[in-house]
Nucleic acid binder design. Sequence first.
DNA 1: TGTTAGCACTCTTATCTGTTGAGTGCTAAA
DNA 2: TTTAGCACTCAACAGATAAGAGTGCTAACA
Lengths: 343, 343
Amino acid sequence: MLTERQLLVLQVIIDEFIHTAQPVGSRSISKKDEVTFSSATIRNEMVDLEEMGLIEKTHSSSGRVPSESGYRFYVDHLLSPFRLSNKEIRSIQETFRDQMLEFERVVQKSAGILSDLTNYTSIILGPEVFETKLKQLQIVPLTAQTAVAILVTNTGHVEHRAFNIPQEIEANDLEKMVNILNDRLHGVPLVQLHEKIFSEVGALLKTHTNNYEQAFQYLQAALLNEQPTKLYVGGKTNILMQPEFKDLEKVRSLYAMMEKESEIVHLLRNDHSGIQVKIGHENEVDAMQDCSLITASYALGDDQVGTIALLGPTRMEYNRVIKLMHVLSSEMTDTFKSWYQNE
Amino acid sequence: MLTERQLLVLQVIIDEFIHTAQPVGSRSISKKDEVTFSSATIRNEMVDLEEMGLIEKTHSSSGRVPSESGYRFYVDHLLSPFRLSNKEIRSIQETFRDQMLEFERVVQKSAGILSDLTNYTSIILGPEVFETKLKQLQIVPLTAQTAVAILVTNTGHVEHRAFNIPQEIEANDLEKMVNILNDRLHGVPLVQLHEKIFSEVGALLKTHTNNYEQAFQYLQAALLNEQPTKLYVGGKTNILMQPEFKDLEKVRSLYAMMEKESEIVHLLRNDHSGIQVKIGHENEVDAMQDCSLITASYALGDDQVGTIALLGPTRMEYNRVIKLMHVLSSEMTDTFKSWYQNE
DNA sequence: TGTTAGCACTCTTATCTGTTGAGTGCTAAA
DNA sequence: TTTAGCACTCAACAGATAAGAGTGCTAACA
């Protein structure tokens, strides 16, 4: 168990290191107002803190640096409540003030403001598609041989894909088909679309249209091979500003990791409903061993949940950042809620 | 005027430097097969080349490095025709083999393949919107208060925007309005849309719908404040691999520049129809003084022209890259052409 | 007259050395 | 239990030295 004084020393070390990125010496601690005892006393306490694994030396006569367990302890027990400045609050409110009615817009803006306010890299995950429902399907002919298929969901999301109309199919057939599909599939969650089409609509289509197989195959290719959950990233280059990344090799491997979207998605999915902090090696990925990842979730409608995340060095302004994520995730949730309350 | 031998020496120096990124000494030149004379002779020639400003020393006893004028001369007079490897040709062909019918897809893929094959950063500019024409307008209601407006162009491009339906407007009116707009505006170039609406359609709308002003205002807000030309970037992080950018400060300023989209657009617009090479200071932007920018144009339909560009260090594999850009721009042009030939 | 061998010279790079200063750990006194 | 004091450690910096790559110049050669 830690004494009051040890807690204080640990707190000062971490706070200081977070701001300066330099090892903290006993003397500089003793100069703080809230510290009343001498540097020698602090040195003794530091030996104890080091034995407990909460702080480390970079070399035998250096000041102390928080260890990963140190940060973990800090996040779990020492986090002082943080007040955002008026300016910060205002800039968030302004972002959400103007009417945004598409999911993508909201998320894009949120990622932007989050990375701007923190100088870290923000990543936002769209909700899992489970609950996104089909609103309408539409075919717009472009030329004699080509057309665009457009799919609108209840979240205001628009998916589109141009495709070739095979010679054998008449525009007429296509239109009929779309009418049937719209009639039968309205409100069907996207994930069930595939299955539903085969089980319920297939037979019906077959009887009403010629060349059903082929036309349908094309339509399907056009619309259903959608990418999985989309990723929105903000402030990718902010990482370059952090002194811990003056080593290009680290930057490279981090960027390389961020290219692998599927890995990121897997990494971020936050099933806990609150805010989650993963420090250094708690992230299993190699390239992130010097990073912390903070995730929070937002709600879209009743069941759909997405994740907002922030990637920075382990030396992160945890209290400020956590507060920000809190505010942002609830702003997002509120915005989305307002879309559905009187649907 | 340069002698044959000086040309050879210059060629070898630049070729060598492009591959090793190290200053080239007289001895290493003399060891080349195609060089039959001694290092002392080469030294004499190098003095002359240096006087002409084509090569430079990094310090008083170093090997030589091409100067910007050296590269310029090289590009203008010494470029050996380059044969792409089968592998490269195949990977380009494969990219263009599968049916791609949307402008965005083609461009995205092209940017990807270009940066992958070169390890530089590729930037592709969409065509100026002058000639993109409206194909169809569509409104899909989401809830009682909201709807998505969708605009499809003849290039298969789909623009969409969700908006609030003001209380006073009936769905009925909105539908009528869209019908009128579709009827009257089909085939109108997007840039003229604004003007056309006011001059020709406004009056008509007014007589047929209630609350014309307001409904229209909303629709307009939803669709017409489109972003200008869009930018597609590939291989942004390739820059980190280049030895000339081991200095983080350079990387930062380059990335900072790339964020300013409008500047990039202005920089890239290539009105010359061929391939254009801008070396180092020929690019007026500060952050690009160590970079070369190669631009080529592609055609979309009859008049519309876009630009593909490649950004790398001045020490660039000019012959390979230029060949690649050539192939790619004509692949793109061909692809687009096939959309229009029997429209 | 053009070419080349030879040599002195220059400058970078790496390694080693000594110095400085920040910071620690330990001891002994308060 | 706390603190002052002191010896010790180590990183960072500045010279010093040596090795190596490469040049410019000169004089001899074809």
